[in-house]
Nucleic acid binder design. Structure first.
Length: 290
DNA sequence: TACACGTGGCC
DNA sequence: TGGCCAAGTGT
């Protein structure tokens, strides 16, 4: 397996098959890229598109978002899920306003220091918004590398040193090409080398793929954790927050009580929402977005 | 290192 | 039908 057997075909494939997404357009601002990365964390592109568009129309800059209460960000987040991301995006906008002159920072370290920005998002923004040479390892990239290079259907639970070394080894030397390569591998993972039922017939590197050459063996690693949802605290939190999101102003506690039957669970969920800063209890005892 | 954290679509 | 999955981060 040489670099060129993987990189060049995937770059050519991307040139022909890349989706036209708002945050990939030449006129997309770093803020647009940053917003997209927050929204895309654990969330499909199709659901992000309309919310991203409305978000950028309302808040074209981090300064504009930072000027509003965090609760407005939570409300505008709508039903994207994981609303703590909205809170963190608002906090990131505030930090950018206060510490970076309102400009999304371009260094990996400065990005990493922002709330809600971890290794993936810092590398992605540096690469996609600023054209830098960064190792971008998301779930798509990791799956593509696991199959094509390692010969396993799925990567390990967490990023390994070997993956990081491999990502660095494959990364083209030229920064703009490196950035394109990173988005190209992600796109291949999202559209072709999917977790379930990969479309190997449309893959530009199927002939070089270690997993294919090994006969596409079934995954035999440790069981991947199942996400339960019905009846969980997460679902309860979602129900409570939906009441506030869909209401202008504040609500009495009875409105929240009506949203979930299990009393101890409801109280626990409400307390956690308040602790997270997603819900504010007012002096009059009513509840509202922060 | 595991686990918590929303939501909806797919087969 | 319901298990599985979707551009992760924080603790």
């Amino acid at each position: 397996m040489t670099t060129s057997t993987l990189v060049e075909p995937i770059l050519r494939w991307y040139d022909e098959h890349a989706r036209d997404l708002p945050w990939r357009r030449p006129d997309a601002t770093p803020w647009s890229v940053l917003v997209s990365e927050f929204m895309l964390q654990q969330t499909p592109v199709a659901r992000v598109l309309p919310v991203h568009e409305a978000w950028l129309a309302r808040w074209p800059t981090p300064v504009a978002l930072a000027a509003e209460p965090s609760g407005e960000a939570v409300r505008a987040w709508g039903r994207l899920g994981y609303p703590r991301r909205a809170l963190r995006l608002h906090a990131a906008a505030t930090a950018i306003t206060e510490h970076h002159g309102g400009v999304v920072p371009d260094s990996y370290d400065d990005l990493l220091a922002l709330p809600g920005v971890g290794d993936y998002t810092a590398a992605a923004v540096a690469a996609f918004a600023y054209g830098q040479r960064q190792v971008v390892l998301d779930t798509n990239v990791r799956r593509v590398l696991a199959r094509t290079v390692t010969g396993t259907e799925f990567p390990a639970r967490s990023v390994t040193r070997a993956e990081r070394d491999l990502g660095a080894e494959l990364l083209p030397a030229d920064p703009p090409t490196a950035a394109t390569w990173s988005v190209a591998v992600m796109e291949l993972g999202a559209l072709v080398c999917t977790a379930d039922r990969p479309r190997c017939g449309g893959c530009p590197v199927t002939d070089a793929c270690a997993w294919q050459q090994a006969g596409a063996p079934a995954y035999d690693g440790p069981p991947r954790p199942v996400q339960t949802y019905a009846g969980t605290d997460r679902q309860c939190r979602g129900r409570l927050l939906a009441v506030l999101r869909d209401t202008h102003g504040s609500v009495p506690k009875e409105r929240l009580d009506a949203a979930w039957d299990d009393v101890p669970q409801r109280e626990r969920a409400l307390a956690s929402l308040i602790a997270d800063g997603l819900v504010a209890e007012q002096p009059d005892g009513r509840y509202a977005l922060p």
